[in-house]
């Protein structure tokens, strides 16, 4: 609002043609512009700092790598080397020679399948472990041991079992994402307040009604915490898994670029991997905030 006042005070001093434009504005323009301006300032406050940091990082990188004999290309070289890949992500020359869009989409499909399986099985197992003391005693030690196995350590075993790269990669995603989903769901179910159980008991809700009307909504914030950790881990695991199994996929693209010494392509692919992972995380967080609206606030 202060800036508005200053502008208005300055107006008489402006050249004639501009003053007339300003005086012709409707009277209520100022209060309406107030919140808009505030929103712009707010946006700038959030966009400018990361933009500055990014510019600074690029600058330092450029300075470090522009020297002769530098082992990594500077950002300007990366851009010029990979310009074709950036402007045309959709080309498909058959085989593995495809645009980055196709590689990313192949990876995302594997993640979608493995993650969906992990979410379904994870919530079901988590509910079982959270609800039954005996299931907890029987399964929890097993879960606690298995969840520490690194994702890639499962790959040889799953290759042996499935004898094919595609299902093996999906299995690795599944087995990576499932543990946080199971554990968080179980904690959520165990933490359902006794009050809600009492309400369900007085209403004589049957098992199915209790599950859908009390258990899932009450545990939803916990379940979504697990799902959010799970999607992050899936995306971490897929790139590594694809490097080993080959075929179309962003992980293989990186490995292939390394084998052909296209360092710039690796850097471009890493940027895409990071941005995609960020978007996946935000998508799950957004879904969570829509679905659990009101649940956490009590």
């Amino acid at each position: 609002m202060n800036t508005m006042a200053i502008k208005a005070a300055k107006a008489p001093g402006l050249p004639k043609s501009r003053t007339s434009v300003i005086t012709n504005l409707p009277v209520n323009a100022a209060p309406r512009a107030g919140p808009l301006l505030a929103a712009l300032v707010d946006l700038a406050a959030r966009v400018i700092p990361p933009a500055l940091v990014l510019a600074l990082v690029l600058l330092v990188w450029e300075m470090l790598c522009a020297r002769k004999g530098a082992s990594l290309p500077p950002p300007s070289r990366v851009l010029s080397d990979t310009w074709e890949l950036i402007v045309d992500p959709f080309f498909d020359r058959g085989g593995l020679d495809k645009g980055l869009f196709w590689h990313l989409s192949a990876s995302l499909q594997r993640v979608a399948l493995g993650y969906a399986l992990a979410a379904a099985v994870g919530v079901a197992l988590g509910t079982l472990v959270g609800q039954s003391v005996w299931a907890l005693r029987g399964l929890d030690p097993l879960f606690q041991v298995l969840r520490t196995v690194p994702p890639l350590a499962w790959l040889p075993l799953s290759l042996a079992a499935f004898r094919d790269g595609q299902p093996s990669a999906i299995f690795v995603i599944f087995i990576t994402a499932i543990w946080p989903i199971i554990i968080n769901t179980a904690v959520g179910i165990r933490n359902i307040p006794q009050d809600y159980r009492n309400v369900a008991a007085v209403l004589r809700l049957n098992a199915a009604e209790f599950f859908s009307k009390i258990m899932i909504p009450a545990a939803a914030p916990y379940i979504f915490t697990g799902l959010r950790i799970g999607i992050g881990l899936s995306w971490l695991a897929i790139v590594a898994a694809e490097m080993l199994i080959g075929g179309v996929g962003i992980g293989f693209f990186i490995w292939d670029a390394w084998n052909s010494s296209h360092i710039s392509e690796i850097i471009l692919a890493l940027t895409y991997v990071g941005i995609t992972g960020f978007i996946l995380d935000r998508l799950v967080a957004l879904t969570a905030s829509i679905v659990t609206r009101g649940t956490a606030a009590n």
Partner: peptide
């Protein structure tokens, strides 16, 4: 005592 309404 604590109303026990379902918050969702």
């Amino acid at each position: 005592q604590n109303h026990s309404l379902l918050p969702w």
